[in-house]
Design a protein around this nucleic acid. Structure first.
Lengths: 240, 240
DNA sequence: TAGGGCATGTGGTCCAACCACATCAAGTAC
DNA sequence: GTACTTGATGTGGTTGGACCACATGCCCTA
């Protein structure tokens, strides 16, 4: 067995070196989804770096949604590989919205673009659409605003997943997450929530019906109007 | 002046608390693009946490493209707020490609989707298009593969920026970055690089011409064929 | 056999020190 | 006066060691 000690790393910072090592393990298949990283102390000794540097690397991977750190002992402890690109993209987008570098309007526009595409090419037989239909039934009985919005998020996410593109699904989820707080504040502006909810339910059914009739173009148009209509009604842009 | 010391943070980990504080400063406008964070030691004392925790938070922000840490003294030193969503999204996507959770084919498909949309709604008078044209002239004289590809990246990025949507631009750049290494390996598969380069140059000119003639639909079709054609010629999917 | 309690191993946090680097100011030689 | 050297200062980068909280599982005891 050869030593993993690494010396002479040029201008690269130590935690980046650890990051690189872990990424190579992922690429090489030595570390797969569900797998556990060596303990921080062990990894530090193996790579010849301090535990601090290892921890900084793990923090980044955690923020990227690649690993999950768990204390204690047993199967749920340690640092394990997960796959959650949505939170990573969502956090990044949210932070850049906070710096006013990414306008909310651009995020909404991108969401319209992605979701229109997704419903246009959704397969009517997709299990994700069955889930979407089930969510619609739940929303029918839902009166609480918060509950309705939570179901709404899941419904739109199901639509995005029906297209079968993991990248589009992840981006859709992250866009929604990034402006989640914004949407909540916007909803408070609505004059008559019950009327709005009723309209949203109808539009949801129309979208799903268009998809099931294989009319992708119509579904795309409906979903675009659906999203843009909501933001316009609630007054997008008035918060800037 | 009131103390910023924070006690009683429930189940939240210390670095997340620092993260939250910094995000609140960004949202409140007390910290803007180009501004400098307090020194790590200072911030640690102000928030009543260790420097380690502050550093972990800063690492995450750095990975998210929100800040840039610089050693030494002077205007370029310290931790300053930047706005680089592209590297954040790119790193996240690249890592999840490494875990085999995001198929390269989905990334290419998403790129086609976004870039088609961008050229379809690009404004012919946009300065980004002028830059794109200038890049085409450079590519005309470019014979080295690496140089050509570097210019190609900038050309497509300029096209994306012509649509005027910062989120789409950032996502486009991140998609390209995430599969940058993949593209390089693919290019080595090409039987006749010079012939391919000549074809790419022609297609680039056609795309730009369509945009300038206000024919967005044609431009979208051309750019979709352009991208998909390249990956198919180089053998997308053969590397898995 | 059932229960309590300790041994073990994990991440979470903190501290104190040192290094490398970049700037700027004071002092010095010319 | 000017140009150069040199040290003081302040920044992030890195390290080692210590301790804590937590969760498991074994071992010993009643």
């Amino acid at each position: 067995m050869w030593s993993n000690h690494i010396k002479y790393h040029g201008s690269m910072r130590t935690h980046q070196l650890v990051l690189q090592w872990i990424e190579s393990q992922l690429l090489g298949g030595h570390l797969a989804l569900g797998g556990r990283l060596p303990a921080e102390r062990t990894l530090a000794e193996q790579l010849g770096v301090s535990r601090t540097s290892v921890r900084e690397a793990i923090r980044i991977l955690e923020a990227m949604g690649v690993v999950r750190a768990g204390v204690g002992s047993g199967p749920d402890a340690g640092t394990v590989v997960i796959a959650d690109p949505t939170t990573a993209l969502g956090s990044a987008l949210r932070l850049h919205v906070a710096t006013s570098h990414l306008p909310v309007a651009d995020i909404v526009q991108t969401r319209v673009l992605l979701e229109s595409w997704a419903v246009a090419r959704a397969n009517p037989g997709s299990p994700a659409l069955a889930e979407a239909a089930a969510l619609l039934d739940e929303m029918e009985k839902s009166t609480e605003t918060d509950q309705f919005l939570a179901l709404d998020v899941r419904f739109h996410l199901a639509l995005a997943e029906a297209a079968g593109n993991a990248v589009v699904s992840a981006m859709m989820g992250s866009l929604r997450e990034a402006i989640q707080g914004y949407v909540g504040r916007l909803t408070a502006n609505l004059p008559d929530w019950d009327a709005t909810a009723a309209r949203l339910r109808d539009e949801h059914r129309s979208i799903l019906a268009a998809i099931n009739e294989n009319d992708g173009a119509a579904a795309a148009k409906l979903v675009a109007d659906h999203i843009q209509g909501y933001y316009e009604e609630a007054g997008l842009g008035s918060g800037h």
